[in-house]
Simulated scan of single mutants.
Amino acid sequence: MPSPTPAAGRRGSTALAWFVALLALAAGGWFAWHGWQARSQRALEIEAQTTQRLGALEQRIDALRQDQRAQAQRLQQASSTNRVLRDELLGIGQRAALLEDSISALADPDRNGAQALRLDELELVLGLAQQRLRLAGDLDGARRGYALATSLLDGIHDPAWLGLRQALVQERSALEALGDDPRAIAAGRLQAFAASLPALPITTAARDDVTLPWWRRAFARIIDVRHADAAVAIEPGDRAAGLAALQLELTLAQAAVERRDRAGYRDALARAEGWTTRLWPDSPQLRERRARLRALRGLSLAIELPTLGTTLEQLRSMRAGTR
């Protein structure tokens, strides 16, 4: 056989080299892929461990929060318990003080049935006088009640009631200084105003103006010329209806005075003032009546006595302290 040539040997060596290179490349790719898979698996395991740790940490945080809330509730309950105990101790102390005061009052030789009965009567009279003034507005009845209370208190010679006697004198002086009842003053002035209305002139006096024509000056006292849209009621029927409405408003004002309803009283007088301008023409007398109406609207109907009831309150507090 003929021996192989050098070119064929070289081609065989090159193919072998390429085959070895391909094997090495495949082995390197396989090792690289295997390493990547290992790293990916490791990363997933680390991520899973991290997630587990975070979950465990959140559970611990939730447990700590629950413990904290439980501790806060326990502290609140303890605070409430301490407050209740403190209130009970204070109540026990107050009851002990009341027992001591009761024993001292029972042992007081000056405490007798006659004085207690007189104080009860004094408290009743002061209460009746105060309610008589506050509810019924009876100023004279309240003054008589305070005078009776003064005579009752004068029969008690215990120096411990000297402050109460001074308070009663001050309140009675303030009651005497009020003067007349504002309701009576308003009712009287309103009645006088109603009685003065018929004296108002129904027509204005004729004017002797030398600048007017002679025929107008000659017939001025015979013929009265008025505009058709005049505000003053001239017809008998209109005047009768207007006078009835005015009398109704004045009656409503009187009723509001009796109730001490200042808002209703002012509204009724405002409507009455409107009817005066509808029933009588402008004149000095009408302006004077309207000024009186405005003055009547400014009157106060309530009895203002800031010291009302101070003696009764002091008497009750003193009696509560001596019991």
Rank of each mutant, 00 (worst) to 15 (best):
R65T: 07
S40W: 03
L54Q: 09
W30H: 11
T51P: 00
I46M: 06
G29V: 12
G29T: 13
Q66W: 02
R42N: 08
A21T: 06
A32D: 03
R53A: 13
R53K: 06
L22D: 14
T50Y: 04
W33N: 04
Q66G: 10
W36A: 00
V20R: 15
R69I: 00
A43W: 05
I61K: 09
G55R: 11
T14I: 14
G35S: 08
A17K: 08
T14C: 12
A21M: 08
A27K: 14
T14N: 10
F31A: 15
A15D: 05
V20T: 15
R60K: 14
Q59S: 11
A72V: 12
T50E: 09
Q49P: 00
A48L: 02
A63R: 11
R42G: 07
F31N: 10
A21W: 10
A17E: 10
A48D: 01
E58A: 10
I46Q: 12
L54M: 09
V20Q: 15
A32Y: 04
A72T: 11
H34T: 13
Q52G: 00
F19Q: 01
Q49Y: 03
I61A: 11
G35Q: 12
A38G: 05
W36H: 02
H34W: 13
L57Q: 14
T14A: 15
D67R: 13
R69E: 07
V20L: 15
T50F: 03
G29H: 07
A26H: 03
R65C: 03
T14D: 15
R60M: 11
W33S: 08
A26C: 05
S13K: 15
L22W: 13
D62M: 06
Q66H: 08
E45W: 00
W33L: 14
Q59N: 11
A27L: 12
A27W: 14
A24C: 10
A48P: 01
H34R: 14
I46H: 05
A56P: 01
W30M: 12
I61V: 13
T51K: 06
V20E: 15
A15V: 02
L64W: 13
W33K: 09
Q66C: 04
S13T: 05
L25K: 10
A24M: 12
H34D: 09
A17V: 03
V20P: 04
Q68V: 08
V20I: 12
L23H: 10
T50P: 01
R53L: 08
Q68K: 09
A48G: 01
Q37L: 02
S40T: 02
Q49M: 02
A21P: 05
A72K: 13
Q59V: 03
A32Q: 04
L25Q: 10
D67I: 08
W36L: 02
W36D: 02
S13G: 15
A38S: 07
G28E: 09
D67Y: 05
G28Y: 09
A70D: 14
L23F: 14
A26I: 00
R69D: 03
D62N: 11
W18E: 04
E45Y: 00
A72H: 12
A56R: 04
S13F: 13
L54S: 08
Q71E: 11
R60P: 00
L44D: 01
G55Q: 12
A32L: 08
R53Y: 03
W33A: 14
L64M: 13
E47S: 02
G28D: 08
T14E: 15
Q41M: 03
W36E: 02
H34K: 09
L44E: 01
A27M: 14
Q52M: 03
L25H: 12
Q59E: 14
L64P: 03
Q49D: 06
A32I: 06
H34M: 07
